[in-house]
Design a protein around this nucleic acid. Structure first.
Length: 211
DNA sequence: TATGCGATATTCT
DNA sequence: GAATATCGCATAG
């Protein structure tokens, strides 16, 4: 029987330092928001007061009119959150196994979002690891489906205000971020060439290193 | 570390 | 019925 190492971050000491982002701080433009979010913190507060958090190290922009964006064919019952004011969560289920979270990114009525693709685990790493079936640290939130699982994000989070006082919210950076790198997006079949994926250069927690 | 491939649920055609 | 903003496992190097 393997003994599980107790996480030193179990009591989330760094959580006290987290400053909630106000909507006015978010750029009102999809691509600018995608760049802005690199280095910021995504936080999950449980009912019992435990706080799990991670640095956003990788995002993708799906701007208005993007043929690979979920809003491209117009508003439907499932993609409605993309059409909210910036700073709301759009969560959906893909490939039969993964939830993914976007941050709505334009003015009300305009469908666009920023996909959160990877996190560097910060607080409550033990909790995140349990949610991820004991995966190694580097793989806890490396990939959009993994990041959502580590933060307990599912369809109930769809439509939540990430600038509000809900279980999932955005916070300011906890430390200076490294250089910003740009690449084409991953896993799409249309508008493949556009350089709309952003990540922190050198981070071991991005889902795929530069090529 | 890198690549290949099957599984799986929801949505839209 | 087809496609999908993926993951985890297997295999090879």
């Amino acid at each position: 029987m393997k003994t599980r190492k107790r996480s030193r971050a179990a009591n989330a000491p760094a959580a006290a330092k987290l400053r909630r982002l106000r909507r006015a701080e978010l750029p009102a433009d999809t691509v600018r928001l995608a760049r802005y979010l690199i280095g910021k913190t995504l936080v999950h507060s449980t009912r019992s007061g435990v706080v799990a958090s991670g640095r956003i190290v990788e995002t993708e922009a799906y701007p208005p009119g993007d043929p690979s964006g979920h809003a491209f064919r117009g508003k439907t019952v499932s993609n409605g959150s993309l059409f909210l004011e910036r700073g709301f969560a759009y969560v959906y289920f893909a490939y039969g196994s993964s939830f993914m979270m976007n941050v709505s990114s334009e003015r009300p009525g305009i469908g666009a979002g920023v996909l959160i693709r990877a996190l560097e685990p910060l607080d409550s790493i033990g909790l995140m690891r349990r949610r991820r079936g004991g995966a190694p640290l580097r793989d806890l939130a490396r990939g959009p489906g993994r990041a959502a699982a580590a933060m307990a994000i599912d369809r109930r989070c769809d439509g939540l205000d990430l600038c509000g006082t809900h279980s999932i919210w955005l916070a300011a950076a906890t430390r200076r971020r490294g250089g910003l790198a740009v690449s084409p997006r991953i896993g799409i079949t249309r508008a493949v060439e556009h350089p709309l994926r952003f990540y922190e250069r050198g981070s071991r927690f991005v889902s795929r290193t530069s090529r």
